[in-house]
Design a protein around this nucleic acid. Structure first.
Lengths: 348, 348
DNA sequence: GGCCGTTCTGAAATCGATTTCAGGATTATT
DNA sequence: AATAATCCTGAAATCGATTTCAGAACGGCC
């Protein structure tokens, strides 16, 4: 691989001049510039990012840690982060940390040793050491998707409370009166926030969410399948359920169908995220869209801003959720449309 | 961030000694070793991978280029490659190249400049420049999933012909006599191979695949939905269809259901890959499993072997496919089970 | 002509590690 | 006790870039 030294030799100039031509930050005589550029083409020179990164203290690398690769919603964060990062001539190193704080710590440590320019991560739990580790360095970081208790850390999150509100409003508008909610792990703050938004909104409109109709899940599809029977066998069986992510919602849908019932006729189901699978199942899944792209971009932008400023920005960026109505929600069998519109008035 | 120099100063030794303690490749006196290790703990020293990579010519980085991030089958390759790579203390840089040869070239160029230790890529098309670019360097690479015409390049692929064979055998065993196939883009070699395997096997058993029942798709879900009507309106309507990946298969399933027909009663459907969505849809999708994990590991191993040997290994590793029977395939309505077993004898 | 200010260029230091080379200290061998 | 062999350590070169510093060349101005 040709180095700047080779280019300099061929062009008959010093390496400093070659560097100047390449980085075009200092005036260089036109004749020398052409000479150097010719030499660059001739030996097919490519700047070595390891070397330039070492000296200039920027390896043009960003690290991204997600709880699990292959989980469609995290993959969306990966996709959009990669696109945005690479559009700015950075590279993206990813790590799937298997929902394990130790694995997370190990990966973060790896990124620090690699002297990356910034780290974005989706925390696996509140008691991860990642924040302490990172605060001991000067590396910019941003917490994505799961802001949680760490109000001090720079973060980009969805408006989780509002997502619950959107779900509740939609289901009430359809005329439902008996609701259920399948949450994510309640040790994850966003699960609690979503639940509050859902429950508060129902209450405010005179409806309510019975304790017996709140089921704690773990965000996984299989969990949704299992919980379907609990849902259907509940003392006060709900006519509409909101699952706090699409995987579980689709799992519930599958479980309901497996038991010979129909969606949305017998049970309206909605989720959160709007992953691709929502449009692949029948009926298509009504959901609350998480804006993966804008969240990813906001996270990278925040990172870059921290880098420029040379210090942490303890800012929480909260992006709005959006209701996406498809086929898996409908008015309940027992409820007339007219009484539904009554409720609409109450909550608006 | 503390450097080796700091450690050396505190321990009262030279940086060379510190390096030797860390890399433990040369004997160091026990007393000095302890001294150095204490100093390392004291300043919380972490080796700078940029610097060590520059000098030792190994940045402990692997690059992975996939046609599109967020596509579930490619995400499986990402997942398992990342796991395996990181288990060996390497990092993984990924790039989603949007099925665009230019984007691919740009990303590969980026990886070369970054002086990665190896590159794995899933080619977007036969006329990508990636191979030429890489052959002009000494960087080890492996072509994953799409070996294609480049018999010269190191590659890890599934036995695509065999996957077609498995699909054909399964459908014939169920008693089907009228088949259809939805292929991927026929400019992608593996689509042709899969089709040959399917068609050849049918013919060998006295069945056949009519030209009018071969539909060229593009591996996308929406495409499957669209093709469903073509399938159902074909002159000789098939009772079983094999789509060359799961996304299209699930699309066909959705399209069939949308038209008021039922799977597998009215049409048996199977796919390829065994992505997570196969178990999320109802009926669950019968498919031919692509062994993502073993393929990813084989690719990284091959890469490491190339690195050790210091030269390319033009070896094609072909891993077997595996039939996974679920609910989306069943005997045809018009066909009795007894005549089905007759066919089984013919092909076994 | 002499002085000053631009504009451009090169030598050398630097980033933080690894590695070679040479020499000092220690032990083994006779 | 002298010599050889072994073990350990430090100085310095190196990887391939960036950046500082100083000086050369050139033009303008009085």
């Amino acid at each position: 691989m040709a180095s700047m030294k080779d280019v300099a030799r061929i062009a008959g100039v010093s390496v400093s001049t070659v560097s100047r031509v390449i980085n075009r930050n200092v005036p260089v005589n036109d004749k020398t510039r052409i000479l150097v550029n010719d030499a660059i083409d001739q030996v097919n020179y490519r700047r070595n990012l390891l070397a330039s990164g070492l000296r200039s203290k920027s390896g043009s690398l960003i690290g991204l840690a997600v709880p699990e690769i292959g989980n469609e919603s995290f993959d969306m964060f990966i996709k959009y982060t990669e696109e945005y990062v690479r559009a700015h001539s950075y590279g993206l190193i990813i790590g799937g940390i298997h929902n394990d704080p130790d694995d997370e710590a190990e990966f973060i440590d790896h990124l620090i040793r690699r002297a990356v320019d910034g780290i974005i991560f989706i925390r696996v739990s509140d008691d991860s050491h990642a924040l302490e580790m990172l605060n001991a360095t000067t590396i910019p970081y941003v917490v994505l998707d799961r802001g949680g208790s760490s109000a001090i850390a720079p973060a980009v999150v969805m408006d989780n409370y509002h997502s619950g509100r959107l779900a509740a409003q939609h289901l009430m508008q359809l005329g439902h009166r008996e609701f259920a909610c399948v949450t994510g792990g309640l040790n994850v703050p966003l699960s609690r926030e979503r639940l509050s938004g859902f429950s508060d909104t129902l209450k405010a409109a005179g409806c309510s969410l019975r304790d017996g109709n709140i089921f704690e899940g773990d965000f996984e599809f299989e969990n949704g399948v299992e919980l379907a029977s609990s849902l259907l066998n509940a003392k006060h069986r709900a006519t509409a359920v909101w699952a706090q992510n699409d995987s579980m919602a689709i799992g519930i849908m599958a479980g309901v169908v497996d038991r010979g019932l129909r969606v949305p006729t017998d049970l309206s189901i909605m989720g959160v995220d709007d992953i691709g699978a929502c449009r692949m199942v029948r009926p298509e899944l009504t959901t609350v869209r998480q804006p993966f792209q804008s969240m990813s971009e906001a996270a990278v932008k925040l990172l870059f801003r921290e880098r420029e400023l040379g210090k942490r920005i303890s800012e929480h960026i909260v992006v709005p959720a959006e209701l996406v109505i498809r086929q898996s929600t409908a008015p309940p069998l027992s409820q007339s449309v007219s009484s539904a519109s009554q409720i609409v008035k109450e909550i608006s």
